[in-house]
Write a protein that binds this DNA or RNA. Sequence first.
DNA 1: TGCGTTGTTGACTCTCGTTCAAGATCGTTC
DNA 2: GAACGATCTTGAACGAGAGTCAACAACGCA
Lengths: 253, 253
Amino acid sequence: MTRTASRKTSAPSPSARGTTTATKRTTRRTANGAEEDGRKRLDLDERRDQLLALGKKLFGERAYDEISIDDIAEAAGISKGLLYHYFGSKRGFYVAIVRESADKLVEATEVGSELPPAERARAGLEGYLDFAEEHSAAFLTLLRGGIGNDPEVTELVDATRERILVRMLANMGQKNPRPVFRLAVRSYLGLVEAATIDWLDRKAVDRDTLLRFLLESVYAIVTAAVMLDPEAGVRLDEREVLEAQALARGKKA
Amino acid sequence: MTRTASRKTSAPSPSARGTTTATKRTTRRTANGAEEDGRKRLDLDERRDQLLALGKKLFGERAYDEISIDDIAEAAGISKGLLYHYFGSKRGFYVAIVRESADKLVEATEVGSELPPAERARAGLEGYLDFAEEHSAAFLTLLRGGIGNDPEVTELVDATRERILVRMLANMGQKNPRPVFRLAVRSYLGLVEAATIDWLDRKAVDRDTLLRFLLESVYAIVTAAVMLDPEAGVRLDEREVLEAQALARGKKA
DNA sequence: TGCGTTGTTGACTCTCGTTCAAGATCGTTC
DNA sequence: GAACGATCTTGAACGAGAGTCAACAACGCA
């Protein structure tokens, strides 16, 4: 009962605080210098970041409930109470970590709107793969859904997909896509995730091949969607599509 | 497995154990096989199935650790110890449930090898969607990965995907597919999963549209793969592909 | 120096997964 | 049908670990 109750009461997410205020500049290294024992009073954001970084590492290595709050506290050289001071609950801590990874993924896949459509697709995928390679543990943790079936985590992951999806659609000139088109692009995102995870696991093909496959697939999927609902692609510039295909295929020769 | 480690330290400590003697006179009165208080000795498989069915229902409704062993035991009208007798641990119980769902999914997507290739694809997808509709909670639990990052569950889910993948490849005449081809089909599976989950969530398109989209996508993806590695499709009968496309598109007219 | 603020601690509580020895019921044997 | 092994079933106790809280400590400021 304790868990459920506390989760309920901690609903008003306290995490908004850190993100709204721009990074404070109070990087003071205490006058008396001393932090030889590692335990020292730290600035809120500093400590928060330190803990998030540690958590990301730990949860990337082992499963959620293979790691106790005491483990985390010990690894961070702090008391367990402090973790609760910052994150409210173990779950809150986990969610904060996932949220950070999610934000970074969204950021990593941002592309300049000045690029032509085809280049935009390529740039987005490159960013995606960069992120997956550099933060593979975090990437897998994120997409595997973290704590299974946990409403908050599931929602967060879904919301992240949605952010990326909406941007992809916008990049295709589809602010209000037809249902089939939206479904198609959403499915394509699933394809990209699956391909990337498989690639990280096996490295069965080289990165360039993977990238070209993913590029080919966009056009293939979009074409399939338009075939089912010709109206769906009404805003798609035919020339752009052809141009994009040419770009993708040109690389392979 | 943190918990199991505690087994090490749990020395027998036989003191203060025998205090429970002759404390109870239960209301049990098994007159002629019938039981009035709900308790009854059941056959192993009967009990097991009953518990699995109940667990499937419960875990489909709420998250893993929102449900306690006591909840389950109470809902089943048994003691919690009995759950351990059958499944060893809460996690073991969960895994058993997921395994059952996984097996059913694999079974549901089996298709007769006497069908022509294109019909096989359609039949497999129909079975997949049937399963998803009928057991939507179980389906989501299964694909969401259950207990996040839990090695056993993750492995089980991955193994299930692999079973389906291998069968799909076999159905395409690809016992030893080229890496790109395998990756493509694996990715396609990810696409199907994403599309199905999105469909269950939103019902934005009707089932037939979804099905046709998924069929179109197979050919699109396979084509993309073959384009990257012409050798990949060496065993694919060109006529079969065209025929299949015609079938998929014929429906839409 | 005193005071409000807030980072920080460690001991405590309590839920919940897990264990275990004993009891209940069934099937079998003589 | 009494004895008996097998196994289903129970309830209480245990311990790990999540979460709480009141007090302490370092800092900024007047």
